[in-house]
């Protein structure tokens, strides 16, 4: 990963979508998924992130994990911008059925309907779901 040159990857660029569907601390999927996104962000692909179902809980504000003795990784989502991952979508239906709104989230996102998310999925080369 430690390229001396600040050169860019010049292979074919594919559209990658990472779909986050799990709550953050009950299983390891959310954290592992985030690490995969950060690692692959180095390859200059066209990456987008989608939060659906319990995945929206990953980016809930005000997480405080001292009491359960686990690492609070919610601040790391704010680093995604620096990794050039800027297309972040949340499914409206998932957010609303959990009683949340955009103001409850740690990062700015674009809210899309289920139909819009399906369209977006159709347009991808690779979809990876955690």
């Amino acid at each position: 990963m430690e390229d001396f040159e600040d050169n860019e990857f010049d292979g074919p660029i594919k559209k990658f979508m990472y779909v986050n569907r799990k709550a953050p601390y009950g299983t390891v999927y959310a954290l592992e998924g985030l690490e995969v996104v950060l690692i692959t962000a180095a390859f200059d692909q066209d990456v987008c992130l989608v939060f659906v179902d319990d995945g929206v809980f990953q980016i809930k504000k005000d997480q405080e994990t001292t009491g359960i003795n686990m690492k609070n990784f919610s601040p790391t989502y704010r680093a995604l911008e620096g990794y050039d991952v800027e297309k972040i979508y949340v499914e409206k239906e998932s957010l609303e059925s959990r009683g949340f709104s955009e103001d409850d989230l740690v990062i700015p996102v674009e809210i899309l309907s289920s139909a819009e998310i399906s369209e977006l999925m159709d347009a991808q080369d690779v979809i990876v779901t955690f």
Partner: peptide, 28 residues
């Protein structure tokens, strides 16, 4: 106020409901 909360509120009172505070805080 979620799609899942009705079931619980319907039994609230006849069953005692508790939640673990540290898990609530962890999830914000």
């Amino acid at each position: 106020g979620t799609s899942a909360s009705d079931e619980i509120t319907r039994r609230n009172g006849s069953i005692k409901f508790f939640a673990l505070g540290p898990d609530i805080e962890a999830r914000g």
